[in-house]
Design a protein around this nucleic acid. Structure first.
Lengths: 259, 259
DNA sequence: GTGGATTTGG
DNA sequence: CCAAATCCAC
């Protein structure tokens, strides 16, 4: 049994206590973190060293991803050779020997404001590069799990009122198409298997009392390749974490594999 | 018996917990606060309303003074008619009916950087106006206590190494002379009665590990008029408060009157 | 609304 | 070093 989790924490320095609680509660084997918002050297020292290791791709102030994984897991960090994907600290690729599985931890560019052509162009280009990288892995007959914050509202039901997002970089049709193209490589979006449309959200904006009004969106996902899909026995979104003191605007979520 | 205390808290919104602890420990009848750093409307609601009242002279972000006093004390707030003293929220004058005593709560301008003529000139002018106000009270045969942060190192022994302060607005000779002229109105500096030179400090800079190296200065005082001097039985500086978590850079201090 | 960087004041 | 403001991104 293996539990793999993901969480956009919106600053690990502010949220490490919540992450500690999540680790204790869910006991994941692997936790993908996004938006750690710090440099590698600033990553707080909260992890139980006897239990977990961590690999960090951080940068100053913005973005930043990290993977916390149990000590007994043998991982290989794979270098990503893409100017676009490496220009900001938004991706990590690891290979798990024990599961024979590649895992991509992603924090997709937001792309707003939509009227800034640089922003949306970078997002589209970034999705293209993620597509190319994923394609290469899949064509080489390897298994792949992509987890993280995709900053896209793929399905109309992934928002209370989708019309409000049509003119936003998260609901933009070009972006949604890029995400769908990524899935069409043969990756299954697990939220589509385990929940019915509109059943869950993963993000509630801090503004406009979105949490109190349950005005959320679903933008955090796991995408998995066919051979491993059959091993997925469970998927949970931990909605409670949005109601904590000083919460992240995203909630953690996790899957369980029977391997 | 009456206890009157004073404390430059360096933000009441950050320090109200410490102030609460101080009130519980010392149980003063009156507490003069300086550098509350907020508007009246932002003053936190931490005071036990059944025990204390508060009068606030605040402003946005900088300076600001307040007086917390026991409910049974009858005070009159006296309007200060001085352009200079009222241009920034640095002074409060109250009259205590029960003790027949005027109390001035002061947060003197810092005056640095010393090479900015506006800053030091304002400080000197401000001291002149404080002198005039105090003189008026004293000449009218009323008793006066001035308490607070005078931002002056009057005595060479009030710093570990006074030479380091000679070129600073706190050790500047003109400023020291202004403070001495204020005392020469007939006010006794209680720290000179209860402690020997160099025995106590009231401020340790956050910078350069001043607290850890005990590199402090004495700049917070009570000045009292002759008739009330005979009633002062005790003076204490609460040095421990500098060692708390998230301390103010100043410590609280208090006097005890046998009336 | 929240977090980070930067600037200003001390 | 610390606190507040302003600005920026999301």
């Amino acid at each position: 049994m293996t539990i793999i989790a993901s969480w956009n924490v919106n600053s690990i320095r502010v949220r490490y206590g919540h992450v500690e609680n999540f680790l204790n509660k869910v006991d994941p084997d692997i936790l993908l973190l996004q938006e750690i918002k710090c440099m590698n050297s600033e990553f707080p020292d909260f992890i139980d060293q006897s239990k977990y290791n961590v690999t960090i791709n951080g940068q100053k102030a913005k973005y930043g991803v990290a993977i916390i994984y149990k000590k007994e897991i043998d991982i290989r960090i794979i270098q990503i050779k893409s100017q676009t994907l490496e220009s900001q600290a938004r991706v990590q690729l690891i290979y798990l020997k024990s599961l024979n599985l590649n895992i991509l931890n992603v924090y997709t560019p937001n792309g707003n404001p939509i009227n800034d052509p640089d922003k949306i162009q970078f997002k589209l280009k970034w999705y293209d590069e993620l597509y190319n990288l994923s394609k290469k892995i899949i064509l080489s007959k390897q298994d792949l799990l992509i987890g993280g914050d995709f900053n896209v509202i793929e399905n109309i039901k992934d928002a209370i009122n989708f019309q409000e997002w049509e003119n936003d970089a998260l609901g933009n049709l070009q972006v949604r198409t890029k995400f769908r193209e990524l899935c069409f490589l043969g990756l299954t979006n697990l939220s589509r298997i385990f929940f019915k449309p509109g059943q869950i959200f993963s993000f509630w904006d801090y503004q406009r009392a979105c949490w109190e009004r349950n005005d959320g969106i679903l933008i955090d996902h796991f995408l998995i390749s066919p051979k491993k899909l059959q091993n997925v026995k469970r998927l949970e979104y931990e909605t409670n974490f949005r109601g904590l003191e000083k919460p992240s605007d995203h909630i953690p979520f996790w899957l369980k594999l029977n391997i």
